[in-house]
Computed example of a mutant assay.
Amino acid sequence: MGFLDIDRVTKSFGGLKVLHETDISVEEGEFLVLVGPSGCGKSTLLNMIAGLEEVSSGQIVINGRSMNGVKPADRNIAMVFQSYALYPNMTVRGNISFGMEMHGIPKKEREKKIAEVAELLQISQLLDRKPGQLSGGQRQRVAMGRALTRDPDVFLFDEPLSNLDAKLRVDMRTEIKKLHQKLGTTIVYVTHDQIEALTLSTRIAVMYGGYVQQIGTPQEIYDNPANLFVAGFMGSPSMNLFPARIVSANGAPAAEISLSDGRSAVLPFAGRDGTGEEGREITLGIRPEAITEPDGADRKSRAVHVVDSRVEITEPAGSDIFVVTQMGGKDVTARFSADVPVKPGEDFQFAINMEKAVAFDPKTEARII
């Protein structure tokens, strides 16, 4: 049993099932991110935890107490919305104080809590302003401050940064992470942004089509995706996925891939069990950072293989340059150091770290190596 248990929970609207049987256990103090594309069921699940939607079947338990049939106000949760949901006619102080007033907390205690929260979120100088006088980032801090006054069992965040510009999103991610480290509160956070999921969470639940596709730490999700959807969705740039075939190389499994000029290359996997799979068609998955210039390859890896391939496109990105070539008839992105003299139209050496490679069944989309 975790601090928050989602036990065989489903949700249907009429005859349409939008969330299939879902099991997630969240420990106290954990930061769980629900991530996936629009319509995958993540916001529906968050709304059921909050009590804004009823559970069709299964149960949600918080701190040992079943929430089925319990009103949102009685759940001891606090929710931060995408839209901030601030009262425009109230000051920042009034917005933060409102929930405490509704619960009959004495004024002296309210003022003390407001001062603590304002200092924590660095908004003390904004207390007498109204929401219309604040930037998007400041409004989001006020919305978080209002939630913090509750001392809830669980914080729920529903895409809180999606209305902010790119730089402000990065800054607010840092603030939210600092806040979690300082308070140690249990957080469930919904986003469609996989970078947000990877940077904020202690664990991630990747959702698609109403199902949880994989649950794990950010590193587990990134390095060992359970299926093609997770592999392609998590990471920016996303994992390279292209056709290959399993062959035997000195008794060990290897991937045979076609290159841009029609040649093929055999790339042995390192420390992977693929015996008995020879001849099987696969989808090979390799992250861009595992395909580099030879000098940039991982010196500790036992399975770096160098191949020549035609450069199609280069995309400078500051400290790196993304180099696009073709493997298996698909565009494949490599991450080179910015000072590598690589040009489109030329053949160049690509170092592929097969310790980082994974393989999927093209039909079932499940990982096999």
Rank of each mutant, 00 (worst) to 15 (best):
D295P: 05
N89T: 12
S258T: 15
Q138R: 12
Q214V: 13
K112Y: 02
T44A: 00
V170F: 02
A254I: 07
G29E: 09
G271D: 06
F229H: 02
M48H: 11
L228W: 00
K343E: 13
Q349P: 00
R93Q: 10
R110C: 01
S66F: 04
L126W: 04
R335A: 11
T185R: 15
G276K: 13
P72I: 13
R150G: 05
V230H: 11
T283I: 15
E289Y: 03
A73E: 15
V206F: 13
G262S: 10
H20Y: 12
I246E: 04
R310M: 12
I221H: 02
D295E: 14
L127F: 07
R280A: 10
E312I: 14
K343S: 12
I60H: 03
N240M: 07
V188Q: 10
A265K: 02
F31L: 07
N63S: 15
L228C: 04
L16W: 01
S66K: 11
V142F: 11
M102I: 15
A231L: 09
A73N: 06
H192Y: 10
P268K: 09
G136C: 11
D339L: 10
L16R: 04
K113T: 14
V212N: 11
S124V: 08
M144F: 05
A317H: 14
T292L: 13
M102N: 11
P294L: 10
L164P: 01
I204S: 10
P218N: 04
R75D: 01
L52Q: 08
G262Q: 12
V311G: 09
R139S: 05
R173D: 00
R110N: 05
E220A: 15
A254L: 07
E111G: 14
F242L: 09
V61R: 11
R280M: 14
S57I: 10
K11L: 08
V61D: 03
F81D: 05
S258G: 14
G296T: 10
Q59T: 13
I62R: 04
I215W: 00
S264C: 13
R245P: 02
V324I: 15
I24F: 00
S162L: 03
